[in-house]
Amino acid sequence: MNYRKLGNTDINISEISLGTWQVGGGWGGNFDERAAAKILHEAIDGGVNFIDTADVYDDGKSEAAVGRLLKERSEQIFVASKCGRQISPHVSEGYTPEVLRKYVEASLKNIGIESLDLIQLHCPPTAVYKQDEIFELFDRLKEEGKIKHLGVSVEKVEEAQLAIKYPNVKTVQIIFNMFRQKPAATFFEEAKGKDVGIIVRVPLASGLLSGKMSREREFDTNDHRYFNREGKAFDKGETFSGVDFEKGLDAVEALKDIFGEDEPLAAWALRWILMFDEVSTVIPGASRPSQVKANLLSSALPALTHEQLEAVRAVYAQYIKADVHHLW
Rank of each mutant, 00 (worst) to 15 (best):
K5Y: 01
G7I: 02
D10K: 15
I11K: 08
I13F: 01
I13E: 00
T20M: 04
G24S: 04
G24N: 02
W27S: 14
D32V: 00
A37F: 08
A43Y: 12
D45W: 09
G47E: 10
Y57A: 00
E63Y: 02
R68K: 14
L70V: 07
L70K: 07
Q76R: 14
I77S: 02
V79I: 14
K82I: 03
C83P: 01
S88F: 15
S92H: 03
A106T: 13
I111E: 02
I111D: 00
G112A: 08
L116R: 00
L121D: 01
C123H: 07
P124L: 14
P125L: 07
V128N: 11
V128A: 13
Q131Y: 14
D132M: 08
E136P: 05
D139T: 14
R140C: 03
L141C: 05
K146S: 02
E155K: 05
A160G: 15
Q161H: 02
L162E: 14
I164E: 01
K165D: 09
P167M: 15
I174L: 13
N177M: 05
M178I: 11
R180D: 13
R180H: 15
Q181M: 15
A184G: 04
A185N: 11
E189W: 07
E189Y: 02
A191Q: 07
G193C: 11
D195V: 08
G197E: 04
S206V: 13
L208E: 07
G211T: 06
K212F: 03
S214Q: 12
R217V: 12
N222A: 14
D223I: 01
R229L: 05
E230W: 04
A233L: 03
D235R: 00
F245Q: 07
G248L: 10
D250G: 00
A251V: 02
V252R: 06
E253G: 00
D257Q: 14
F259S: 03
E263T: 03
W268P: 05
S280K: 01
T281D: 01
R288G: 07
V292L: 10
A294W: 07
L296Q: 14
S298D: 03
S298V: 02
T305S: 15
V312M: 11
A314L: 10
Y316W: 06
Q318M: 10
Y319F: 14
W328E: 06
